[in-house]
């Protein structure tokens, strides 16, 4: 097994483990947020392995740097004494069980179908020079995808306005 593969499995294990920890067995909500950070960072590592350096950087910047901080900020704001989690995943009723089962089935289906599909389009071994680096991706973003970037701007504006009006302390 190459070093690359080793790193992949290590990151994969970390990601899955901390994800399960987040939804499963941590006791305090801050610990859950920390588990989320670990997952995010592991995924960033995997992105690097897959020649997506820019994504990896942004993943860490936005997720670890902004989103999880936002979570922590709200947790702090709420001042939860008991960790706020209560008993771990209790009493799942039938509907939820069916939902979970269905999703797992879909997931399994996906995994099962993956092998067949990719025989037609094998992994490209020789990537173009500088694939996934910030320069190439940046050029793509502001030429082919400029419209999408504009739209993301609008989405962010909408979320700012929405969040402000909802969270503002005093309104008349």
């Amino acid at each position: 097994m190459s070093f690359e593969m080793f790193l992949f499995y290590a990151f994969a294990f970390l990601a899955v483990f901390s994800a399960v920890a987040m939804i499963g067995f941590v006791r305090h909500i801050v610990a859950a947020a920390m588990s989320l950070v670990v997952t995010m960072v592991s995924l960033a590592g995997i992105y690097v392995l897959m020649h997506a350096e820019l994504i990896a950087a942004i993943q860490i910047l936005v997720y670890a740097g902004a989103i999880v901080v936002l979570f922590l900020f709200v947790i702090m704001l709420l001042d939860l004494r008991d960790g706020g989690l209560g008993p771990a995943a209790r009493g799942q009723n039938l509907v939820k069980a069916v939902g979970v089962g269905g999703t797992v089935t879909i997931g399994t289906l996906v995994v099962a179908s993956v092998s067949g599909v990719f025989s037609v389009n094998p992994l490209v071994e020789s990537l173009p020079e500088g694939f996934g680096e910030h320069r190439a991706l940046g050029i793509a973003l502001f030429t082919d995808y400029a419209l999408a970037v504009e739209l993301v701007g609008l989405v962010l504006l909408a979320s700012i306005v929405g969040a402000v009006i909802l969270a503002k302390r005093k309104i008349d």
Binding site: L154, V155, A158, I165, L166
Partner: peptide
């Protein structure tokens, strides 16, 4: 998302 986010807030 641009459709939904404002409506959540609204």
């Amino acid at each position: 998302e641009l459709t939904s986010l404002p409506i959540y807030a609204l």
